[in-house]
Amino acid sequence: MTSPARGADRPVGPAIVADGLVRTYGDVRAVDGISFSVERGEFFALLGPNGAGKSTTLHMLTTLLPPSAGHARVMGFDVVREQAEVRRTLGMVFQDPALDDRLTARENLEIHAVLYGMPRAGRRDEIARSLAWASLAEVGDRRVRTFSGGMKRRLEVARALMHGPRVLFLDEPTLGLDPQGRRNLWEHIARLRQEGMTVLMTTHNLPEAEACDRVGIIDHGALVAIGAPKELVATHAPEGGDLEDVFIALTGHQLRDEAATARDLMMQFAKQGGEHTR
């Protein structure tokens, strides 16, 4: 994106610092003392099985969840004490689309512009630029309901970039996309790398993780390994292995079946016609 970065930052230190982050739900420790840092301009992936604590970590870093213990900073701002600054400096793409699908792409972007206090003058151009970035200029006035999964995702990434964030958080960005949609989105994300954006993503997808500068592997709420993909392979799967071997070596063969969450139930309901069945 060509617009200048507007999010605030403090000029020293890493882009993201997590220091002993803990999140408990009753007796369950969803995140159990995670520490790592992400340098400015780095592409960093959090890799882990289902329920390992990836999304919970992301939600603490993006101020959505207060940590039960520990600290975190994004662009030098404390996620608890300087919540407003942190929110302004980051862009977030959630695991499931967070769009209003009764509204058009343009209307969704307009809401974002207002929520982030972007100046009224130039908003139209800003929206047009975002639509162009997402290759959605032709369909800006179509309701999001009619979009494919890939189109929704590109719209969400474009939206997350609109207010000029310094750090981008992507929660499973390519989940549920077909190979074409996946590749297309990945090309869009790769462009950000050339522009020096800091990106923290969670993923299941090993080739995507392999393409990142560094990878942190999470299991049972704790960080079990961190480093460049090549280093990890060299350390944990030295005999011609790849990142998948590292992943299995560190997190085991056990299947991670989870009970259906409230969201799963709603998604199922959505498939049957959802909100529009009354």
Binding site: T62, T63, L64, A84, R87, R88, L90, M92, F94, D96, P97, A98, L99, D100, D101, N108, I111, H112, V114, L115, Y116, G117, R159, A262, R263, M266, M267, A270, G274, E275
Partner: peptide, 19 residues
């Protein structure tokens, strides 16, 4: 509608914003 909005709609986007 906010129950819906929270799980699969725009509300999360609103909640992560500084608004």
């Amino acid at each position: 509608a906010i129950v819906w909005d929270r799980e699969v709609g725009l509300l999360r986007e609103v909640m992560v914003s500084p608004a």
